[in-house]
Each structure stands twice: as C-alpha cells, then as structure tokens.
C-alpha cells in the first residue's frame, strides 16, 4: 500500500509538470503587477479602501445612468426571478416629501437588491446604501461594484468614523435617500438582532424622516454562509415615516424604529393589518429577535412562522 506521507522524490520536477492555471499564474505575479509590500519599519500608506474609499464618482450622471439601467433591467429581472417581492405599504409614503432613510431588518445579501427595486420613485434612483466598510469595501473590485451598482457608501461597523458619517449626512441633506440596516449586519439565523442607533443619529443630524421597512423571506433566498441564491417569495412592507421629535433621543428613537419594524413584521406575517395594529398599540408585537431558546428551537420557530405565513404545509422540516 502506498505510504500517504511519501512525497515525490524530486518535487520541483513534479511542480514543473503541473499545468498552468489562472490562479497559479496570479499567485506567481510580482511587482509591478502586484502591489509591493511595505518594508519593515516604514509607515504603510493610508488605505484608499474600506471607509476611505471615495464614492463621489458613483453619484455623477454617468454612474447614475449605469446604475439606473442595471437596476431597471438586470436588477429587476434577477430580483423578480429569485424573490418575486410582494410590496405593500407604499400608500404610507404618499405624504413623504424629500429624502428619507429607509431602515430595514437585515436577513441576507438579497435585501439590498430587493430594497433597491422595491423602493418607489422618486426615491429609487436617488438612493445610496450604507454598506459595511470592512466587507463591501475590502478590495478595489468589490468597492467599485458596490459603489456603482448599489450606490453604496462605506460605513464602519465597529468604530465611529466621522468622515463616513459626515458623508452620509451631506448626501441626505443634498436630497439623496439612504438605505440602512440598523442591525449592523446580516442575521445569523433568520431572526433579527438589536437595532443600533446609527439610523437615529443620521435622522437627527440630517433632519430627515426614517421609513421603517420590514423584509421577509430573503433569508431563504441567500442566507448568511450561502454562496448562491435559491428562489423564494420575499415580502417588503413599508411603514409610516417616523420623524425625530424634540422629545426623542437616539436610544428612544431607535426603540421606536425597532417597534415599528416589528409591527410591520407582524402585519406581514399574520396578513392581518387590524390585529397587527392592535398588538402594536398594546405594545404586544412579536419580538423580531425570536424565542429565547436553543439554536435549533429558534430555527424551528422561524420555519414554523414562515410556513404559517405562506399558508402551506409543504415544508415541515426546519432548515438546518
């Protein structure tokens, strides 16, 4: 039997016989095709990626035109195929005038395409998305794609970067609307996480209303950890815009926003507006965070809720 630890006697000859591949060719590249490493003891250059990535160009007309064309053709086609979103609550935006912050729960990467194609005119094409600086702006290609096709601007998740916040405020004041996920990241298990006060802070600073939005079903389309989407039905429910009142503070407003999204989730899952409103009035809307239980119970509860929502008994076994 062959010894699994045995290595070829003349390994370099063996290596030379391997067929060249694109990845091997890329791995072999050197300066200037690849960036030179910073020598030890030298101050590295301030990165132009992450929170420092300049997205100004993505708001000029050529980029806006490209984005418009992509969203209206490819974006709508792909979202229509995978998500077929059912949009409700548009009537609540009738009184909304000027820019707004669309704050939604965040279940998957499918949320942003669904949001961009669901938000009605005139906000849809003057929209930017607060995207995680460390994730979407980690390399030049993904930074450029994010800025061009979803109008993303980098937002630091773990620290406060004055520059990015000021950028977002300036855009909001300049008539641009924003999509933000106050949870700060995708849901790990389909249930929502606690909202962070970023949206409240921006609403106060830029003096714009916040539209609570609930998205359902996108967790099944492209949950965290999955690389390729699968088809499922998404549901987007817009709520009544919330304005930052004088009596509010960031925490209070964030709680109000979370409660509004929970009420929308209740409305969306039960399909009964009247009951959902009554529960919201009594502060009894189901918690978006899910039951306090073991992971499999939470998953089960989520699947049950999804099955009830769709009114089908087709799938009784939880996604694990």
């Amino acid at each position: 039997m062959a010894d699994p630890n045995r290595r070829p006697a003349i390994s370099h000859l063996n290596r030379a016989n391997r067929l060249p591949t694109v990845s091997r060719a890329i791995a072999k590249t050197e300066f200037p095709l690849r960036a030179a490493p910073t020598p030890i003891g030298e101050e590295p250059m301030a990165s132009k990626l992450g929170a420092n990535f300049d997205t100004e160009w993505a708001r000029r007309y050529p980029a806006r035109l490209a984005r418009w064309a992509t969203v209206e053709t490819l974006g709508k086609g792909v979202v229509g195929y995978y998500a077929r979103p059912k949009i409700s609550g548009i009537d609540r935006l009738h009184d909304l005038d000027g820019p707004a912050i669309f704050a939604a729960n965040h279940q998957s990467h499918a949320d942003t395409p669904v949001m961009i194609t669901s938000i009605p005119e005139p906000w849809r094409h003057k929209l930017f998305v607060g995207a995680a600086a460390d994730y979407f702006f980690g390399n030049r290609l993904s930074s450029t794609m994010s800025a061009l096709f979803i109008g993303a601007i980098p937002i630091e998740r773990t620290s406060i970067n004055r520059q990015t916040i000021e950028k977002a405020i300036a855009l909001l004041r300049g008539g641009w609307s924003m999509v933000i996920y106050p949870e700060g990241g995708r849901s790990p298990d389909g249930w929502s996480q606690e909202f962070r006060p970023g949206a409240a802070f921006l609403a106060k600073q830029a003096d714009v209303p916040v539209v609570p939005v609930n998205i359902r079903g996108t967790f099944d389309i492209l949950r965290k950890g999955r690389m390729w989407p699968k088809r499922a039905r998404a549901k987007v429910t817009f709520g009544k815009p919330l304005t930052f009142e004088d009596s509010d503070n960031n925490r209070k407003f964030t709680r109000k926003l979370q409660a509004a999204v929970e009420a929308l989730a209740d409305e969306s899952s039960s399909g009964n507006w009247w009951t959902a409103r009554k529960r919201a009035h009594n502060d009894e809307s189901p918690d978006l965070g899910g039951p306090e239980a073991a992971a499999w119970r939470r998953r089960w509860a989520l699947t049950e809720a999804g099955a009830a929502k769709q009114g089908s008994s087709k799938r009784r076994w939880p996604y694990v």
Partner: peptide, 14 residues
C-alpha cells in the same frame, strides 16, 4: 516609493 504606488502607477510603470 514602490509600496506607495497605486494600481494606475504600477500599470504605468509596467
């Protein structure tokens, strides 16, 4: 300095 070159600089150098 080489490590301060942007992709554009490196393309021009190449």
């Amino acid at each position: 300095r080489e490590w301060e070159m942007s992709p554009k600089d490196r393309a021009l150098l190449f």
